[in-house]
């Protein structure tokens, strides 16, 4: 394994996926608006799908399954993003803010 053929091994992809996951997790804790949280969540999903494709490329005898599951993840991510964005619009209409801390009506 040299610097130039890193793309032919499994570990670099796993490292990139780990970095993406950790960055997304930190973003989820760091951001205070729902849009920022949605962006971080997309990073988490991206890390998961990169892992799936990498394992399907290097570890499984069947090359298709990982790609198909990544397509499913993409579909679910699109559905999730559209729902969250509709919620954000409704929330902004009612509260004039997209900060998560304004949604505290159920607080005891």
């Amino acid at each position: 394994m040299t610097v130039w053929n890193l793309g032919l091994f499994l570990e670099p992809y796993l490292m990139i996926a780990i970095l993406l996951f950790v960055i997304g997790f930190f973003g989820l804790l760091h951001h205070r608006t729902i849009i920022g949280m949605l962006i971080s969540g997309e990073l988490l999903l991206a890390a998961a799908s990169l892992n799936l494709v990498a394992f399907s490329r290097f570890q499984s005898p069947d090359p298709v399954t990982g790609q198909v599951f990544t397509l499913f993840i993409m579909g679910l991510a699109a559905a999730e993003a559209s729902m969250v964005l509709a919620l954000i619009i409704a929330m902004y209409r009612n509260y004039r803010s997209v900060h998560a801390s304004t949604l505290n009506e159920l607080k005891g």
Binding site: H30, H31, R32, T33, I35, G36, L38, I39, E42, A46, L71, M74, A77, A78, A81, S82, L85, I88, I89, Y92, V98, H99
Partner: peptide, 27 residues
């Protein structure tokens, strides 16, 4: 598919929502 769905659809959709909802600083 990554470019079409994520870059072409989801990022643009998030940007549209942002223009409708004008968030201030996020952190």
């Amino acid at each position: 598919m990554q470019i079409v769905i994520y870059v072409g659809a989801i990022c643009i959709m998030i940007m549209f929502t942002m223009m409708l909802a004008e968030p201030r600083e996020s952190t």
